[in-house]
Write a protein that binds this DNA or RNA. Structure first.
Lengths: 245, 245
DNA sequence: GTTGGCTAAATTGTTAACATAATAGCCAAC
DNA sequence: GTTGGCTATTATGTTAACAATTTAGCCAAC
């Protein structure tokens, strides 16, 4: 018998059933995406078993496609599979969470550099707009919205860099989203610090100064690493090592 | 009819048929590895079509496993798949090659930093040994062996860092091996410069100076980027845009 | 009460067959 | 000689069935 039934509790259908009809991409890429979002979005709990039949029904497809999707997600490190024992959601350890943010630090430093080199005036204006939003939520004390806009800001800079490889690698890290398990932005004083750092980054990019853009971005994420470490030490990591199947 | 028959010309069986019997990992990971090595090793030409049936026979398995293996490799960016049109080996563009080395630069900078922090005395001795080898091949003019030892040196530093995430990301980049398509080490003067830079890196790590280790590693790979750019501009990229299926 | 093995259920692994789409070859018309 | 459409072939997409393995439940023996 199954150890838990959360996949059922996730309910009904998962995201859009198909949408795109005649896309050139293969279908299982789409299935993988939907599964990825379901997992990172918290539809499945860490360590929860992923039964191929259930997933096939949930995604509205067959086991073969689920299988290839799971292979992709295992490649990404989002799920683990063992021979004859199936797949389960991977639990991100504390050490790994730190490493993820560290890797983000250097990669996003690279994108900040290229954003400073490649950004158009319109894009910089867009960035300023997002920055204003961020400031607004900070002053209003809406930390959860702050976190969301924060993500969008970083994504925008990555897009502005036009560095496909860095974008891809960062995307893989994002999928193993740490911010879902650890809410380090909630740490006292972190938001204020974060806001100032973002201002510095924006200024460097607007000034088309690649060197400073990279440095400020790295500094920002290095501080994020430190904040994460404090959260971990204080033991506030969300459901970590609590439910170990 | 098939457009080319190189998969047959690759001949017989591909690497070890199985080897490990009761491994905990799922089998298709192994198939993916063997395919990966075959592609990066040059068994298949860039842009060559990969027919599922042929691969299944070649790997000694069924189409389902080949399919999941291909999904993995597509995830890695080593092959491309289009709906109803199958998979083919991905050709690495000039821009992408540069981006790969740039990403390596920042990620290996990170590993150099942690290598300086975490390396044992034995490992530093090992590094010195590799360095001696490198010097030997340089003085003897064996540039191909130099390139091989060069790879080993970098791998060793990555291992010494104990940074699993950086290692994983770098591994993905390595699989899209640029050095196979472009032999930038053959560029005039590059080897000499490379040798000195490696010495700097080693000294920084041996001195347990993380800051300098990162800087020297980045400088080294930034120079590698420049060398690659020169090779590309001079049009010496190996079989690039020559045979486009 | 715990340990041991045995049986049944559940889940994954593998294979084959069929359906569908793309490609190549061919023939006729201009 | 070239273009256009038709047909046969090839390769992929999908599904189902069966085999092998693990897991859970159960009963008896100590």
């Amino acid at each position: 018998m199954r150890e838990s039934d959360h996949s059922k509790s996730a309910g009904g259908r998962l995201l859009s059933p198909a949408g795109r009809a005649n896309d050139r991409r293969v279908a299982d890429e789409d299935y993988a995406s939907r599964l990825r979002e379901a997992i990172t979005g918290g539809q499945f709990l860490p360590n929860e078993r992923l039964i191929e039949n259930d997933l096939a029904e949930l995604l509205g497809t067959n086991r073969a496609n689920v299988r290839t999707a799971l292979a992709r997600l295992e490649q990404e490190g989002l799920v683990v599979r063992e021979r004859n024992r199936g797949a389960h959601v991977r639990l991100i350890s504390h050490e790994e969470a730190i490493e993820i943010v560290e890797a983000r630090a250097v990669l996003e430093g690279l994108t900040a550099r290229y954003a400073a080199l490649n950004a158009t005036d319109e894009e910089i204006a867009e960035l300023r707009g997002i920055m204003q939003e961020l400031k607004g939520y900070y002053e209003a004390g809406g930390l959860l919205q702050y976190a969301n806009v924060n993500v969008r800001l970083h994504q925008t800079i990555v897009r502005m860099s036009r560095h496909a490889m860095a974008a891809k690698l960062i995307g893989m890290l994002k999928s193993q989203s740490v911010s879902f398990q650890y809410r380090s932005i909630l740490a006292p004083g972190r938001a204020e610090c974060s806001l100032k750092e973002h201002t510095d980054i924006l200024e460097a990019i607007a000034a088309r100064d690649p060197e400073r853009a990279e440095q400020t971005m790295r500094a920002h994420l290095d501080h994020a690493v430190e904040a994460l470490c404090r959260v971990i030490e204080s033991g506030h990591g969300t459901w970590h090592h609590r439910r170990t199947g």
